[in-house]
């Protein structure tokens, strides 16, 4: 027989082989996970051009997402500064008992948004008004005995975020107090600050969502390209009994790895750009005045960007491989 194999007693010895001494040891679950991870990295290395291109694009996208967070972080700081020092005047009824006023002050002071509470008596209010009129102060003569100005509590807000609805609620919560006559604050400033917050918040959120969608799209297409390159291998894998999980898992790992590496690389680039830019901006007086302290993203934002990278990677690769699960 030409080109044939080693015959044992007229046979190839298949039965002996199957009954042979090779002990088929199987991987543990961790062993299988490690095997699939190795397969994922082999696949990434098998298409270096596609992998590097995808990684670079995801790096840029995650860099932009990080930059958005950085900008929003500093905008948030600026807005909080704008809100800081905003005051609410709580005018008191003349008939309010001392204990009621003390209770009101205590309640206001307990609110987390409040930085300072100052009681202004009727006399102090009149003196202050008197002072503000300057040379015209003579107009107030005679009012000392019958002071029409109410006592008030001046509430100065702290660093809590300005929110139109929250602000209204905060003010309204004291309106029902029996000691309170009326409440006044600058609605215009509060509204503007809140609108700015909403604008920056919406734009930032929209842009970040778009960028993350773009990253997911890139990962989906990268994995699709890799799957296309491996289509014969996948068919053969399925023919010899590979489960869908065995085929899909390396792709998901590839997607997560691309997302993770892209996020880390994006953050590293962002950090160096931040160092470079802060060095340049610090020389500008205006920037120093508005933003005396430029800081990089806090650790939880860094963690968030990395987490987003991994999540986008997993989602993108899942989109690419989901059909394989049913085949």
């Amino acid at each position: 027989m030409r080109d044939g194999g080693k015959k044992v007693g007229g046979a190839y010895g298949l039965d002996n082989l199957w009954k042979g001494d090779v002990d088929l040891q199987y991987f543990s679950k961790w062993g299988v996970a490690w095997q699939l991870t190795q397969q994922a990295f082999r696949s990434l290395c098998a298409s270096p051009f596609t992998s590097i291109l995808a990684l670079l694009t995801i790096t840029v996208v995650m860099l932009l997402v990080g930059a958005l967070l950085l900008v929003s972080q500093h905008t948030y700081g600026l807005m909080a500064d704008a809100g800081r020092g905003l005051t609410i005047s709580v005018y008191l009824k003349d008939a309010a008992a001392e204990s009621e006023v003390a209770g009101l002050k205590q309640a206001i002071q307990a609110a987390p948004q409040v930085a300072e509470v100052r009681y202004i008596s009727k006399d102090e209010a009149l003196k202050s008004f008197h002072k503000s009129l300057g040379e015209q102060a003579g107009l107030l003569e005679g009012l000392e005995t019958d002071n029409p100005l109410p006592a008030s509590v001046e509430v100065t807000l702290g660093q809590e975020r300005l929110d139109q609805e929250g602000f209204e609620q905060f003010a309204a919560s004291f309106r029902e107090n029996p000691a309170v006559e009326s409440i006044q604050y600058d609605r215009g400033l509060v509204g503007q600050a809140a609108a700015l917050f909403h604008f920056f918040g919406s734009v930032g959120l929209g842009a970040a969502a778009l960028l993350l969608l773009l990253a997911a799209f890139i990962i989906t297409n990268t994995i699709r390209l890799m799957l296309y390159a491996r289509r014969h291998e996948i068919v053969i894998m399925r023919m010899v009994g590979a489960t869908a999980g065995f085929v899909i898992a390396p792709c998901l790992i590839e997607g997560c790895a691309l997302g993770l590496l892209g996020a880390v690389a994006g953050l590293v680039v962002l950090y160096f750009l931040f160092l470079l830019l802060t060095g340049l901006l610090a020389q500008l007086e205006l920037v120093r005045a508005i933003l005396p302290q430029l800081t990089f993203l806090p650790w939880y934002y860094v963690f968030l960007v990395i987490l987003m990278g991994v999540a986008v990677g997993a989602a993108g690769s899942f989109m690419a491989v989901r059909r394989l699960a049913d085949e």
Binding site: G5, L17, V22, L24, Q25, Y26, G31, V32, V240, G241
Partner: peptide
């Protein structure tokens, strides 16, 4: 055997034995 989760050494040992009998 790889897709069945068999470890590397036994699967290559068996594959080599099979290749030997098949020449």
């Amino acid at each position: 055997l790889e897709v069945l989760g068999v470890k590397k050494k036994p699967r290559y040992d068996l594959a080599m034995q099979l290749l030997e009998v098949l020449g």
